[in-house]
Computed example of a mutant assay.
Amino acid sequence: MSVSWSLDAEPPATPLAAGASPEAIHTALDEADQVRFRLALDAATETMRRELDLAPVFAVLEEFRRLAILQSDRVAFHRVVRGAAALATGEQSPAGEPFEVTRGKAGL
């Protein structure tokens, strides 16, 4: 894996561009994903400390950066999740179903 941004280089042009800071990623995520992000980043950091390899940290940052981009338009994100759940289950989720239930059906 290659590093897309370092402290001696120019920061990303937009907050969620490649090389986004962990803080920018965290801020852009919904509350439940902020918790998941912190847990994943903690685990990746422990791996980095043990193995002296930054790749796990960068992998977590990139995974959640992409999710943060999807979540930047909450209406579109909910639509995508509902569509993915319908594809996964073969039926539309009920209108009043909690979003996290629908998201679980979608595997997201």
Score class of each variant (00 low, 15 high):
residue 101 V to N: 00
residue 16 L to G: 09
residue 43 A to S: 10
residue 94 P to Q: 15
residue 53 D to T: 01
residue 63 E to A: 12
residue 44 A to V: 00
residue 23 E to M: 12
residue 61 L to D: 10
residue 39 L to D: 09
residue 93 S to F: 01
residue 30 D to H: 07
residue 47 T to E: 10
residue 103 R to E: 05
residue 23 E to P: 01
residue 55 A to K: 15
residue 59 A to V: 11
residue 77 F to C: 07
residue 33 D to I: 04
residue 43 A to V: 07
residue 65 R to T: 13
residue 37 F to H: 09
residue 78 H to A: 12
residue 79 R to H: 07
residue 26 H to S: 14
residue 71 Q to P: 01
residue 104 G to E: 04
residue 36 R to P: 03
residue 52 L to H: 12
residue 37 F to Y: 10
residue 26 H to K: 13
residue 7 L to W: 08
residue 53 D to A: 07
residue 6 S to L: 03
residue 59 A to I: 07
residue 62 E to Y: 04
residue 35 V to H: 13
residue 38 R to I: 15
residue 12 P to Y: 11
residue 38 R to S: 15
residue 70 L to P: 05
residue 108 L to W: 07
residue 82 R to M: 00
residue 34 Q to A: 09
residue 106 A to F: 02
residue 47 T to P: 00
residue 87 L to A: 14
residue 56 P to V: 03
residue 42 D to R: 14
residue 38 R to Q: 15
residue 28 A to P: 03
residue 66 R to P: 01
residue 73 D to K: 02
residue 16 L to Q: 05
residue 45 T to L: 08
residue 35 V to A: 14
residue 60 V to D: 07
residue 78 H to L: 06
residue 98 P to Q: 04
residue 85 A to V: 08
residue 54 L to Q: 15
residue 22 P to D: 12
residue 14 T to Y: 06
residue 108 L to T: 06
residue 103 R to D: 03
residue 102 T to C: 05
residue 85 A to G: 04
residue 13 A to T: 08
residue 95 A to K: 13
residue 16 L to M: 10
residue 44 A to C: 04
residue 78 H to V: 06
